[in-house]
Nucleic acid binder design. Sequence first.
DNA 1: ATTAATTTTTAGTCTTATCTAAATTTATGT
DNA 2: ACATAAATTTAGATAAGACTAAAAATTAAT
Lengths: 217, 217
Amino acid sequence: MLSLAEENYLKAIYHLGKFGTISVSTNAIAEQMQTKASSVTDMIKKLAEKDLVIYKRYQGAKLTSAGNKIAASVVRKHRLWEVFLVEHLSFSWDEVHEVAEQLEHIKSEKLINQLDAFLEFPTHDPHGDPIPDKNGQIQKTDKVLLSQIDEAESCMCVGVKDSSSEFLKYLDKHKIALGTELKVLSKESFDESMILEVHQKPLSISKVVSNNLFVKK
Amino acid sequence: MLSLAEENYLKAIYHLGKFGTISVSTNAIAEQMQTKASSVTDMIKKLAEKDLVIYKRYQGAKLTSAGNKIAASVVRKHRLWEVFLVEHLSFSWDEVHEVAEQLEHIKSEKLINQLDAFLEFPTHDPHGDPIPDKNGQIQKTDKVLLSQIDEAESCMCVGVKDSSSEFLKYLDKHKIALGTELKVLSKESFDESMILEVHQKPLSISKVVSNNLFVKK
DNA sequence: ATTAATTTTTAGTCTTATCTAAATTTATGT
DNA sequence: ACATAAATTTAGATAAGACTAAAAATTAAT
Ligand SMILES: [Mn+2]
Ligand SMILES: [Mn+2]
Ligand SMILES: [Mn+2]
Ligand SMILES: [Mn+2]
């Protein structure tokens, strides 16, 4: 049984390693975990000892299939709890992350399977991120950043890249939620800002925004 | 903000101290916590430092009002989660305790208040134990042990003193649940066993059972 | 009132997870 | 190729929470 710290390190490597093939650098993990590189070295040695990561000195760490499975299970729990908080406890999407960070470490197979059923087997969390299945598999979607959309094209908001409370509140303010239809009226090449049509009204957004909003055509 | 260990010690003292007035002995806490007396001494010193318990060397520990409030809040969370697991996630009453031991440490005011509302403000957990309110107050009921009931009297099962999985499964087997009506047909003075009428059928139970079942007349 | 038994505390050690500072290895620039 | 910069690891320290063994205080028994 893994400690909370071990689970968090695996999750950090999972998120940074994107597709499992790349080795993640010590410094990158340190930044993600808000800790020091020396602490990371200690931990990845321990995880390597348990065959959860592959570690070669000065070469960073990569999840093994056992490590990937555990990390995916933690992410699965995190995202299922986020759905629960939004759907049943009236949390808004900018409030759930902190609590889910705690709930993701609760250890009970039955709990998570029953929660999954109670929520009617959701496929995505409130931020549009996919929920891994029991085997850690995620169904990848064809979402793309809003900044990639051409002028005059329409699309639907399906996720956020930056899920900070600040960005989510910005979206709330402008009535942009998952499922909202967007149309790109024009793009300014100078600063890469855009004018959108949202709910029949024009809205000017900066590149920071279009680069953090996932859409589907 | 308190650590998980600190919260568990406060809860142990809360459960052992019953009405808050009595000092709880180091050994009693050690047994409850499944740890050694020396570890308890270290911890109650730390809790005394934080003004959560009153500690005098060789005299055991007693919760302060601040300590009592925190302990009651942990118990509140434990019992609310137990209700959630039984009512919404199809857990049986003998499966909830272990998971609630973990969930009781999740820190979020909003979470617990929303959970309370979602559950429609339950007053008792699946074992018949009262749920403290936001201020740590519990409404005491007039429940009594089944062993105290006289021959020919009827009563209703309202709680269990022993909430071990073994005892709960024994009750399940004999179709005794909270709300079940019981009638004492006879009492054997020799071994203090009883014959009950349950669901229109006679059932012989030992003193161990009648001493661990709370009823209301 | 002593002695013996029990309870509690102290002293010292261990593990986990963190840190700082110094040493080492790898990457980069000329 | 060599010097310098950056990244990573090692060494040593610290804090929380647990343990064992020994000492001290309290309680019980004669
Ligand atoms: Mn999150
Ligand atoms: Mn999310
Ligand atoms: Mn319980
Ligand atoms: Mn209970």
